[in-house]
Computed example of a mutant assay.
Amino acid sequence: MAEILMIEDDLELAEILSEYLSDNGHKVSVVDEPYLGLSTLNTKHFDLVILDLTLPGLDGLELCKQIRKEHEIPIIISSARHDITDKVNALDNGADDYLPKPYDPQELLARIRSHLRRESLKQEKEDDIKKDFVVDDYGHQICFKGEALNLTTAEYDILKYLISKQGGAVSREEIIYNCESINEDTSNKSIDVIIGRIRAKIGENPKEPRYIHAIRGIGYKITL
Protein backbone atom coordinates (compact mmCIF):
# COMPACT_ATOMS: atom_id res chain seq x y z
CA MET A 1 0.00 0.00 0.00
CA ALA A 2 1.30 3.44 -0.94
CA GLU A 3 0.62 6.68 0.94
CA ILE A 4 -0.45 9.23 -1.67
CA LEU A 5 -0.99 12.97 -1.22
CA MET A 6 -3.42 14.54 -3.70
CA ILE A 7 -3.32 18.33 -3.95
CA GLU A 8 -6.52 19.08 -5.87
CA ASP A 9 -9.14 21.82 -5.44
CA ASP A 10 -11.79 19.99 -7.49
CA LEU A 11 -13.13 18.03 -4.54
CA GLU A 12 -15.61 16.03 -6.62
CA LEU A 13 -12.81 14.74 -8.84
CA ALA A 14 -10.60 14.17 -5.82
CA GLU A 15 -13.30 12.02 -4.21
CA ILE A 16 -13.70 9.90 -7.35
CA LEU A 17 -9.96 9.36 -7.73
CA SER A 18 -9.43 8.71 -4.01
CA GLU A 19 -12.15 6.08 -3.93
CA TYR A 20 -10.75 4.34 -7.00
CA LEU A 21 -7.18 4.35 -5.69
CA SER A 22 -8.34 3.18 -2.26
CA ASP A 23 -10.20 0.29 -3.88
CA ASN A 24 -6.88 -0.65 -5.48
CA GLY A 25 -4.89 -0.76 -2.28
CA HIS A 26 -3.61 2.79 -1.80
CA LYS A 27 -4.26 5.29 0.97
CA VAL A 28 -5.01 8.81 -0.29
CA SER A 29 -4.95 12.09 1.62
CA VAL A 30 -6.56 15.07 -0.13
CA VAL A 31 -5.83 18.75 0.42
CA ASP A 32 -7.26 21.57 -1.67
CA GLU A 33 -4.80 24.36 -0.85
CA PRO A 34 -1.14 24.52 -1.96
CA TYR A 35 0.36 25.74 1.32
CA LEU A 36 -1.57 23.09 3.24
CA GLY A 37 -0.12 20.56 0.80
CA LEU A 38 3.42 21.72 1.60
CA SER A 39 2.88 21.56 5.35
CA THR A 40 1.27 18.12 5.06
CA LEU A 41 4.28 16.82 3.14
CA ASN A 42 6.57 18.14 5.86
CA THR A 43 4.69 16.46 8.70
CA LYS A 44 3.92 13.02 7.28
CA HIS A 45 5.58 10.47 5.01
CA PHE A 46 4.13 10.03 1.52
CA ASP A 47 5.24 7.80 -1.36
CA LEU A 48 3.85 9.93 -4.20
CA VAL A 49 2.15 13.27 -4.92
CA ILE A 50 -0.67 13.93 -7.41
CA LEU A 51 -0.66 17.65 -8.10
CA ASP A 52 -3.14 19.90 -9.89
CA LEU A 53 -1.70 23.03 -11.52
CA THR A 54 -4.64 25.39 -11.11
CA LEU A 55 -4.76 26.04 -7.38
CA PRO A 56 -5.89 28.99 -5.23
CA GLY A 57 -3.12 31.19 -3.87
CA LEU A 58 -0.14 29.56 -5.58
CA ASP A 59 0.34 28.25 -9.10
CA GLY A 60 0.90 24.51 -9.28
CA LEU A 61 4.14 24.96 -11.22
CA GLU A 62 5.62 27.00 -8.39
CA LEU A 63 4.33 24.48 -5.87
CA CYS A 64 5.92 21.67 -7.86
CA LYS A 65 9.26 23.50 -7.76
CA GLN A 66 9.02 23.98 -3.98
CA ILE A 67 8.12 20.34 -3.38
CA ARG A 68 11.06 19.17 -5.47
CA LYS A 69 13.48 21.37 -3.50
CA GLU A 70 12.51 19.66 -0.26
CA HIS A 71 11.49 16.13 -1.28
CA GLU A 72 12.62 13.38 -3.67
CA ILE A 73 9.10 12.02 -3.93
CA PRO A 74 7.55 11.17 -7.34
CA ILE A 75 5.22 13.94 -8.57
CA ILE A 76 2.44 13.29 -11.09
CA ILE A 77 0.83 16.42 -12.53
CA SER A 78 -2.94 16.05 -13.00
CA SER A 79 -4.10 19.12 -14.92
CA ALA A 80 -6.67 20.47 -17.35
CA ARG A 81 -3.95 22.70 -18.79
CA HIS A 82 -2.96 21.06 -22.06
CA ASP A 83 -0.53 23.67 -23.36
CA ILE A 84 2.85 22.16 -24.22
CA THR A 85 4.56 25.03 -22.35
CA ASP A 86 2.87 23.95 -19.11
CA LYS A 87 3.97 20.36 -19.65
CA VAL A 88 7.57 21.34 -20.35
CA ASN A 89 7.69 23.74 -17.40
CA ALA A 90 6.22 21.13 -15.07
CA LEU A 91 8.82 18.54 -16.06
CA ASP A 92 11.61 21.13 -15.88
CA ASN A 93 10.46 22.11 -12.39
CA GLY A 94 10.69 18.60 -11.01
CA ALA A 95 7.53 16.73 -12.04
CA ASP A 96 7.99 13.09 -13.01
CA ASP A 97 4.84 12.75 -15.11
CA TYR A 98 2.07 14.84 -16.66
CA LEU A 99 -1.47 13.53 -17.08
CA PRO A 100 -3.90 15.88 -18.91
CA LYS A 101 -7.51 15.91 -17.71
CA PRO A 102 -9.86 14.28 -18.39
CA TYR A 103 -8.35 10.82 -18.06
CA ASP A 104 -9.41 7.36 -17.02
CA PRO A 105 -8.50 6.54 -13.36
CA GLN A 106 -7.03 3.29 -14.67
CA GLU A 107 -4.34 5.25 -16.46
CA LEU A 108 -3.53 7.20 -13.31
CA LEU A 109 -3.28 3.95 -11.37
CA ALA A 110 -0.96 2.45 -14.00
CA ARG A 111 1.32 5.48 -13.85
CA ILE A 112 1.37 5.39 -10.06
CA ARG A 113 2.40 1.73 -10.15
CA SER A 114 5.14 2.52 -12.66
CA HIS A 115 6.65 5.27 -10.52
CA LEU A 116 6.41 3.21 -7.34
CA ARG A 117 8.25 0.33 -9.06
CA ARG A 118 11.03 2.70 -10.10
CA GLU A 119 11.32 4.05 -6.57
CA SER A 120 11.47 0.53 -5.19
CA LEU A 121 14.26 -0.45 -7.59
CA LYS A 122 16.11 2.77 -6.80
CA GLN A 123 15.90 2.01 -3.08
CA GLU A 124 17.16 -1.54 -3.63
CA LYS A 125 20.19 -0.20 -5.50
CA GLU A 126 20.88 2.34 -2.75
CA ASP A 127 20.64 -0.40 -0.14
CA ASP A 128 23.10 -2.54 -2.11
CA ILE A 129 25.59 0.31 -2.28
CA LYS A 130 25.49 0.55 1.52
CA LYS A 131 26.37 -3.15 1.88
CA ASP A 132 30.02 -4.10 2.21
CA PHE A 133 29.43 -7.26 0.13
CA VAL A 134 27.18 -7.32 -2.94
CA VAL A 135 26.78 -10.58 -4.88
CA ASP A 136 26.12 -10.41 -8.62
CA ASP A 137 25.04 -13.92 -9.65
CA TYR A 138 24.56 -12.97 -13.28
CA GLY A 139 28.06 -11.54 -13.60
CA HIS A 140 29.54 -14.20 -11.30
CA GLN A 141 31.13 -11.44 -9.25
CA ILE A 142 31.25 -10.15 -5.70
CA CYS A 143 31.87 -6.50 -4.91
CA PHE A 144 33.46 -5.45 -1.64
CA LYS A 145 32.84 -1.83 -0.63
CA GLY A 146 31.97 -0.98 -4.23
CA GLU A 147 35.00 -2.65 -5.81
CA ALA A 148 34.85 -5.97 -7.71
CA LEU A 149 36.98 -8.69 -6.11
CA ASN A 150 39.27 -10.74 -8.33
CA LEU A 151 38.22 -14.19 -7.16
CA THR A 152 38.84 -17.69 -8.39
CA THR A 153 35.76 -19.87 -8.88
CA ALA A 154 36.38 -21.63 -5.57
CA GLU A 155 36.86 -18.34 -3.73
CA TYR A 156 33.67 -16.95 -5.28
CA ASP A 157 31.61 -20.00 -4.32
CA ILE A 158 32.87 -20.08 -0.73
CA LEU A 159 32.44 -16.36 -0.13
CA LYS A 160 28.99 -16.40 -1.74
CA TYR A 161 27.96 -19.33 0.46
CA LEU A 162 29.17 -17.62 3.64
CA ILE A 163 27.28 -14.45 2.68
CA SER A 164 24.11 -16.46 1.98
CA LYS A 165 24.16 -17.83 5.55
CA GLN A 166 23.73 -14.26 6.90
CA GLY A 167 26.17 -14.63 9.79
CA GLY A 168 25.42 -18.27 10.53
CA ALA A 169 28.32 -20.58 11.32
CA VAL A 170 29.12 -23.24 8.68
CA SER A 171 31.45 -26.20 8.88
CA ARG A 172 34.22 -26.90 6.41
CA GLU A 173 32.36 -30.05 5.39
CA GLU A 174 29.22 -28.00 4.69
CA ILE A 175 31.25 -25.65 2.50
CA ILE A 176 32.67 -28.57 0.54
CA TYR A 177 29.23 -30.11 0.08
CA ASN A 178 27.47 -26.89 -1.00
CA CYS A 179 30.07 -25.29 -3.27
CA GLU A 180 30.00 -26.88 -6.73
CA SER A 181 33.54 -25.86 -7.61
CA ILE A 182 34.96 -27.62 -4.53
CA ASN A 183 35.88 -31.28 -5.05
CA GLU A 184 34.36 -33.65 -2.51
CA ASP A 185 37.86 -34.98 -1.78
CA THR A 186 39.07 -31.51 -0.81
CA SER A 187 40.60 -31.45 2.67
CA ASN A 188 39.61 -29.13 5.48
CA LYS A 189 43.11 -27.68 5.28
CA SER A 190 42.47 -26.67 1.65
CA ILE A 191 39.33 -24.81 2.73
CA ASP A 192 41.42 -22.93 5.29
CA VAL A 193 43.90 -21.98 2.56
CA ILE A 194 41.10 -20.65 0.30
CA ILE A 195 39.60 -18.71 3.21
CA GLY A 196 43.05 -17.21 3.80
CA ARG A 197 43.20 -16.05 0.18
CA ILE A 198 39.76 -14.46 0.44
CA ARG A 199 40.82 -12.63 3.60
CA ALA A 200 43.90 -11.33 1.83
CA LYS A 201 41.82 -10.01 -1.06
CA ILE A 202 39.56 -8.01 1.27
CA GLY A 203 42.56 -6.79 3.27
CA GLU A 204 41.58 -8.56 6.45
CA ASN A 205 43.95 -9.47 9.27
CA PRO A 206 43.07 -13.04 10.33
CA LYS A 207 44.24 -12.28 13.89
CA GLU A 208 41.76 -9.41 14.17
CA PRO A 209 39.00 -10.30 11.70
CA ARG A 210 36.24 -7.85 10.90
CA TYR A 211 34.31 -10.07 8.48
CA ILE A 212 35.36 -13.73 8.28
CA HIS A 213 35.61 -15.36 11.68
CA ALA A 214 36.91 -18.84 12.50
CA ILE A 215 34.57 -20.74 14.83
CA ARG A 216 36.55 -23.24 16.88
CA GLY A 217 35.37 -26.79 16.39
CA ILE A 218 32.92 -25.79 13.63
CA GLY A 219 34.26 -23.74 10.73
CA TYR A 220 33.61 -20.15 9.72
CA LYS A 221 31.04 -17.40 9.70
CA ILE A 222 30.91 -13.97 8.06
CA THR A 223 29.77 -10.78 9.77
CA LEU A 224 27.91 -8.51 7.35
Results as ranks from 00 to 15, higher is better:
residue 1 M to R: 06
residue 10 D to S: 12
residue 14 A to S: 11
residue 15 E to N: 10
residue 16 I to K: 10
residue 21 L to W: 12
residue 26 H to W: 12
residue 27 K to M: 14
residue 33 E to P: 01
residue 34 P to K: 01
residue 44 K to F: 11
residue 46 F to W: 10
residue 50 I to F: 11
residue 50 I to V: 14
residue 51 L to S: 12
residue 54 T to F: 00
residue 55 L to F: 02
residue 55 L to K: 06
residue 58 L to K: 08
residue 60 G to H: 02
residue 60 G to P: 15
residue 62 E to K: 06
residue 65 K to G: 09
residue 66 Q to W: 00
residue 70 E to W: 00
residue 75 I to P: 11
residue 79 S to Q: 08
residue 81 R to W: 00
residue 82 H to C: 02
residue 87 K to L: 13
residue 88 V to W: 00
residue 90 A to S: 15
residue 91 L to M: 15
residue 92 D to W: 00
residue 92 D to P: 00
residue 95 A to W: 03
residue 95 A to K: 03
residue 99 L to F: 03
residue 100 P to C: 05
residue 100 P to F: 02
residue 108 L to S: 09
residue 108 L to F: 08
residue 108 L to A: 09
residue 114 S to Y: 06
residue 118 R to F: 14
residue 120 S to C: 05
residue 123 Q to C: 02
residue 125 K to Q: 15
residue 127 D to M: 08
residue 129 I to Q: 07
residue 130 K to T: 14
residue 139 G to Y: 00
residue 139 G to W: 00
residue 144 F to A: 03
residue 146 G to L: 07
residue 147 E to M: 08
residue 149 L to E: 09
residue 151 L to Y: 12
residue 151 L to N: 07
residue 152 T to A: 11
residue 155 E to I: 03
residue 155 E to Y: 11
residue 156 Y to C: 01
residue 157 D to K: 00
residue 157 D to A: 09
residue 158 I to A: 05
residue 161 Y to D: 03
residue 163 I to G: 03
residue 165 K to A: 04
residue 168 G to N: 11
residue 171 S to R: 07
residue 175 I to G: 05
residue 177 Y to S: 10
residue 177 Y to A: 12
residue 178 N to A: 07
residue 179 C to K: 02
residue 182 I to F: 03
residue 185 D to N: 12
residue 189 K to W: 12
residue 191 I to K: 10
residue 192 D to K: 06
residue 198 I to C: 05
residue 199 R to Q: 15
residue 200 A to F: 00
residue 205 N to K: 02
residue 206 P to E: 13
residue 209 P to N: 13
residue 211 Y to W: 11
residue 214 A to I: 02
residue 217 G to K: 06
residue 217 G to R: 07
residue 218 I to H: 10
residue 222 I to K: 05
